[in-house]
Computed example of a mutant assay.
Amino acid sequence: MRLARNRNLGWTATAQTLLAATGRYWSAATYGGIGRGTVPLTAELLADFCAVLDVSGEDLAALTGITPANPRSTGPRPGEVAGLIWDVRRLTAAQLDRAVEYAESLRD
């Protein structure tokens, strides 16, 4: 969770980002529990974090002692998600608003 927080992802943003990137939804409170150590980290969740954070499964396995499951992705490739999250941190609020408006116009 510290790696997610380092990318300006709080509990809710983490839940929304992982849903968009993997198609799997867990509540924001679940991610908070993982961060506090009250909810166990599963192989599936660890695989989702690998996809969004662009950290290798081997590295996260070494840190957590859990081998990630095969990632399930319904969206862009993992490295693209991680790069986008990192780049968005540099945008001003006005630039981010424009990007969101543009993205929403593409859905219509």
Rank of each mutant, 00 (worst) to 15 (best):
I66C: 08
C50P: 07
L46I: 03
T92G: 15
D48M: 13
T12Q: 15
A94Y: 05
L63S: 07
D48Q: 07
A103N: 02
I66T: 13
S105F: 13
W26R: 14
T42G: 15
R2C: 00
V100F: 02
Y25G: 01
R98G: 01
Y25E: 12
A20D: 05
V100N: 06
T22Y: 01
C50L: 07
S27E: 09
G23C: 02
L9A: 10
A93M: 03
G33M: 13
A94M: 04
V55K: 02
G57A: 07
T67H: 10
A21Q: 02
P68G: 11
W86F: 07
A62V: 04
G75D: 03
I34Y: 12
R72T: 13
P68W: 04
D48A: 15
R24L: 13
L63M: 10
Y102C: 07
E44F: 01
G37F: 07
N70K: 14
R77P: 00
A82S: 10
A15F: 07
N70V: 14
E44C: 06
L41W: 08
A51I: 05
L63Y: 02
G65Y: 01
T38D: 13
R72N: 07
E101I: 12
R107H: 10
A28R: 06
T17W: 15
A61Q: 09
E101H: 10
D59N: 06
T12P: 00
G33V: 13
Q16Y: 12
P76D: 03
T38E: 14
P68R: 04
T17A: 12
A21H: 06
T38Y: 14
G32S: 10
P78C: 09
G57F: 02
L3K: 13
V52P: 13
S56N: 05
Q95L: 06
G23D: 04
A62K: 11
A15R: 09
W86H: 08
A51V: 14
S105D: 06
G32P: 03
D97Q: 14
L3G: 01
S105E: 08
W11V: 12
R98T: 11
